[in-house]
């Protein structure tokens, strides 16, 4: 106990401030309803996705021979019908946006530094846009007559 303390009354140790502390200057109002629509979208898309995804899994994995029936011909046959094109397009968009928004809130909750949270979200948005556009492109331009 003889070691000399680095700190004393005139020179106290730094206190540990919590991340992104609220001060008089911080409440910056954005005056948008983005978070409200985001919250509603999660609930509504969730309900629709229960039907879409469970139906999808039932058809793909359980009914009519299960997973072994899936092949190029099966996909080509299904996408010949606008109904299944619409189903898959709906599922793609809703699932991707639902998942991306969920991950956005997770990043907002857990990434402490502003730069970390910015770049994680940029990565997320890029991946989401890429997947959604690629999937949409394939659904609409799918050609069953490949050489």
């Amino acid at each position: 106990m003889n070691d000399v303390s680095l700190y004393d009354v005139d020179n106290p140790a730094p206190v540990i401030e919590p991340p992104r502390k609220r001060t008089k200057k911080t409440p910056k109002s954005t005056r948008t309803n983005f978070e409200l629509y985001g919250w509603l979208f999660m609930r509504l898309s969730g309900v629709v996705l229960v039907v879409l995804v469970l139906g999808h899994l039932l058809i793909q994995l359980v009914l009519d021979g299960g997973v072994s029936k899936i092949g190029f011909a099966f996909v080509a046959g299904r996408w010949a019908s606008p109904f299944w094109q619409g189903w898959d397009l709906c599922m793609l968009w809703l699932a991707m946006l639902h998942g991306a928004n969920g991950l956005r809130t997770v990043i907002n909750d857990y990434a402490q530094r502003d730069t970390t949270r910015f770049w994680l979200k940029m990565l997320l948005y890029t991946a989401t846009v890429f997947t959604v556009l690629l999937g949409t492109l394939v659904i609409f331009t799918f050609d069953p007559n490949i050489a």
Partner: peptide, 14 residues
């Protein structure tokens, strides 16, 4: 309500 509608308002509640 407008204040709590913002991005750090009630929608952050989990």
């Amino acid at each position: 309500l407008e204040i709590l509608n913002d991005k750090d308002g009630v929608w952050r509640c989990r």
